[in-house]
Design a binder for these strands. Structure first.
Lengths: 342, 342
DNA sequence: CCCTGGCACTCGCGTCAGTCGAGTGCCAGT
DNA sequence: ACTGGCACTCGACTGACGCGAGTGCCAGGG
């Protein structure tokens, strides 16, 4: 039994996407039958194309030009048509080589974003592990001379946050030890989001004259937890945008602007849904951002067992090679997760 | 006495630079006399222009086009002809508003780079205060449970570096106090570059069984001082490159590539000479980098009294508004220095 | 019923010739 | 030393035109 018409239509869409991604030129019916063994004539393909256009999956830039996939067409391609391309051995090796040997969290993130950019030849985005989802490994209070105290908070992701606070007077070692002990007892192993409520009653456990000190320390800790500084993002490969310059009919300016507004990026990443394999894709207008109307984002969570600690992503033109990009993002996310688990 | 011909030639160069920067179009003799009150006829200007071209200060892109300054022309303009434009009150106010209220070093740097990008509408580059030129404010050793030790190093710029080290066994508090005291006595107030030699004899001051611990701690400190991580650079305003897209005849790709290679940028910044007012300028080929052949860098040191701790810079097309840019860079550098001094 | 070959039509793109005008270099004159 | 005049160059713009890729439609065949 021959393929049903509807099946063939989807095959045509897939062929159009693949050809267009490769050639960057509108693809016509004739070229399509030549490059793919569809077993039918150009005229038939034309009918299918007309139907696909009717459905809003493809469009023609000019009346006498070939067809180009629409955002909706890419969406269908990504959801239904693509078979994820496994990475080559060389690529797997490259990931390992590039990521191994990182000395600390900063280094891991740095290497990750570079690896992703190199691998996909597009813009890579990595969000720092969110403090709000991490747990407390240890809190330390260090007198650093005079009435100054260094408050250090270490998380299970290896992240170290510190603040210098001014306390009224030089605290004595015994009091400090007491505060340190109670503080750690209260928060170690707990999620950072819960810290604020967990330590709320702490000042009451101390004498009136010491409460001020305790409060100051707690304020510093809560300050460290304020999202703004923690929800940082690191970029790499922005030069790749210019390389595929013709991909953005406007200038790449709007895209660069979005990339600089970390808030926008963070919102985008945090709101993305992920499929079963842990990868999410936003295409063109789905990003709900004018500057990204010609861009697509492929993201995946990383770190953490159940819920990911943070996300990493690749941003490129909508006409990107989705199978390869998705495979790369997934592989890197998994590898980084494994490293962070150590 | 009328202006000497040679003086007028330079006035013509200045006029060409100013017009070209403003219009972004080759400027001809007729337009020049119309827009500037040079008091001579176009024909005379043409002669001067021919002489300037002879000297390699200007060039014509096409035989029948106006003249455009060469790198050499810009250089002369910057060195001899420009009168630095003082910032407007609004701009000064903007700098203060944007920079005040920073909570820590990261925040200061972050605000600085954004301010500079906003002010100049170009790409801003800020180098983190170099550790090698800073001095030690304090070293702290913190046991964080088990055989692990947190080594914290605080510099006079407010920078905090930390490492977690594994020591053989859980060290007792007394020994730790001893190490801490001797270490601090040896290095506080000293330059980071001198730390390594200053602590070289430290292990010998301890019993054989403790030397291993001391050595491990010292290694961690020296590790923290390795340049690679410290010589970091922060960027902002890359989208401005695209805005002035037509300024780069090629694509802006090569420029973005250079901006991503922090090593190249660092080398560039560190090797720049500065004039009496503390500002240095590199124009086009002077950057000795192909990707920047159409770009200029305006840099200034900041922080520190005698020698600057680090540099900040603005990068834009060679046809930038030098007087304004130089004024902005200088003002921001001074303001940041003042903040860091506190 | 679906597919096919054929055919007329559309329309973007590259080419080419021609014109226009800005800008130049040179020269003779004051 | 400066100026006005003049011939010349050459890039930018314009409109005409042919080419070719691609389409939509239609009638005919398995």
């Amino acid at each position: 039994m021959a393929a049903l018409p509807d099946d063939r239509r989807l095959a045509v869409l897939r062929a159009i996407v693949e050809d267009y991604v490769q050639t960057h030129e509108p693809v016509g019916s004739k070229a399509l039958v030549e490059r793919h063994s569809l077993g039918v004539s150009p005229a038939t393909i034309r009918n299918d194309m007309a139907a696909l256009e009717e459905d809003g999956l493809i469009a023609q830039p000019h009346t006498s030009a070939g067809r180009v996939p629409t955002d909706k067409g890419y969406r269908l391609f990504v959801d239904k048509l693509q078979s994820v391309k496994p990475l080559s051995a060389a690529e797997k090796k490259a990931i390992q080589t590039l990521l191994d040997g990182a000395v600390d969290l900063d280094d891991v993130i740095d290497r990750t974003v570079r690896t992703l950019a190199t691998l996909t030849r597009q813009v890579a985005v990595v969000q720092y592990p969110s403090l709000t989802r991490s747990t407390v490994r240890h809190v330390e209070l260090v007198p650093i001379g005079g009435p100054r105290l260094l408050v250090v908070l270490i998380t299970n992701t290896g992240r170290v946050e510190q603040r210098v606070v001014e306390v009224g007077a030089e605290p004595n070692e015994a009091l400090l030890g007491e505060v340190r002990a109670r503080l750690n007892a209260a928060v170690i192993g707990k999620r950072l989001t819960d810290v604020a409520s967990l330590v709320a009653t702490l000042p009451e456990q101390f004498g009136a004259e010491d409460r001020e000190l305790v409060r100051t320390v707690l304020e510093a800790i809560e300050d460290s937890l304020a999202i703004e500084r923690e929800e940082r993002i690191v970029l790499a490969g922005t030069a790749n945008l210019a390389r595929s310059g013709t991909d953005f009919v406007g200038s790449i300016g709007p895209v660069l602007e979005v990339l600089e507004q970390q808030v926008v990026l963070l919102k985008l990443l945090s709101e993305m849904a992920e499929d079963a394999s842990g990868v999410g894709v936003l295409i063109g207008h789905e990003t709900a951002h004018a500057g990204l109307s010609e861009a697509a984002v492929v993201a995946s969570g990383y770190g953490g067992q159940g819920e990911p600690l943070a996300r990493l992503a690749v941003l490129g033109p909508t006409r990107m090679d989705y199978p390869t990009t998705i495979a790369a993002v997934r592989a890197v996310a998994r590898y980084v997760s494994r490293i962070l688990a150590q």
